[in-house]
Amino acid sequence: MPISPNQGSTGGGFPATLTGTGLTGATMVHFGNKTATITATSPTSVSVVAPSGAGVVDTTVTTPGGTSSPVPFFYVPPPVVVDVSPSSGPVAGGGTVTVTGRGLATADSVLFGDTAVTPTVVSDSELTAVSPAHATDEVSLVVTARGGTATASETFAFVPAPTVTGFSPLTGLPAGGTLVDITGTALATTTGVTFDGTPATFAVLSDTRVAAVAPSHATGAVTITVTTTGGSDAAPGVFLYIL
């Protein structure tokens, strides 16, 4: 006699259905030593609201004709969200977000504010989700699994794409080491600065300024690109490596 679903939250309160034969007049359904609330019966099924519980329990149906053979039911603890990385993403959507915690193996939904997406479960302690499109805002992030729901302790921010408006100085030595002041907008979530694709050490000074140390490079003109959790933008003009 199968039960569907065959796992659920330790807190109980969810619907479940047992199917089989000879179930007419079912009077009692047990989950371990606890009694479920019967909501509907037929000759081939019994629908119930499951009680709270823990671990693996035997589920049985009692009718005037006797009690069924036990069917295992698995109680799942509620999920726990420990970290969300990155904690922001582009307003256009499409950012990959990694959620770590516990009890994530049965996760089937990640809610960004009011928008739900289907996650990819990596393990019981990790899942990934692709952030949806959303107006600039900070929203709650909620993971739903068979064991219940968990809300991240910090909000998830939808941020606009960056705009790089300029940088100074305009030149540096091929050996690298020149401190370059980059200006623009929406730079607070900067995750990388490159000089023609070569990563540079950087520090975020504000939402409008990032300082980067030019890496070593052959002489010539290169493009400076800033990448944030909201997207990427190339600075106007070129940075010259000169002797």
Rank of each mutant, 00 (worst) to 15 (best):
A145Q: 08
A145M: 13
A145G: 15
R146H: 12
G147E: 02
T149E: 14
A150R: 03
T151C: 13
T151E: 13
A152E: 10
A152R: 01
A152P: 08
S153T: 14
S153Y: 09
E154K: 12
E154F: 05
T155Q: 15
T155Y: 12
F156M: 09
F156K: 12
A157R: 11
A157T: 10
F158K: 05
F158I: 10
A161D: 02
T165H: 08
G166V: 11
F167N: 01
F167V: 05
S168K: 03
S168G: 09
S168Y: 11
S168Q: 15
S168V: 08
P169G: 13
P169R: 07
L170Q: 10
T171P: 05
T171E: 12
G172M: 12
P174S: 13
A175G: 14
G176F: 03
G176A: 10
G176S: 08
G177D: 03
G177S: 11
G177F: 02
T178M: 14
L179G: 12
V180R: 00
D181T: 10
I182T: 05
I182M: 04
I182D: 02
T183S: 14
T185Y: 04
A186V: 08
A186C: 04
A186M: 11
L187C: 06
L187K: 00
A188C: 06
T191C: 05
T191P: 02
G192S: 15
G192L: 15
G192M: 13
V193E: 13
T194R: 07
D196A: 15
G197H: 11
T198Q: 13
T198D: 08
P199I: 08
P199K: 12
P199F: 13
T201R: 13
F202M: 14
F202V: 14
A203Q: 11
V204H: 00
L205V: 14
L205K: 02
L205W: 00
S206N: 10
D207T: 05
D207P: 03
T208E: 01
R209F: 01
V210W: 03
V210K: 00
A211L: 03
A211C: 04
A211G: 05
V213D: 03
A214C: 12
P215F: 03
P215M: 08
P215S: 06
A218G: 15
T219G: 12
T219S: 15
V222S: 05
V222K: 06
V222W: 04
T223P: 00
T223R: 03
T223A: 12
I224A: 01
I224V: 07
V226L: 11
T227A: 12
T227D: 10
T227G: 02
T228P: 04
T228A: 07
S232M: 14
D233Q: 05
D233R: 05
A234H: 02
A234I: 04
A234V: 04
P236G: 09
P236I: 06
P236R: 10
V238A: 14
L240C: 07
Y241F: 08
Y241N: 04
I242G: 08
L243E: 11
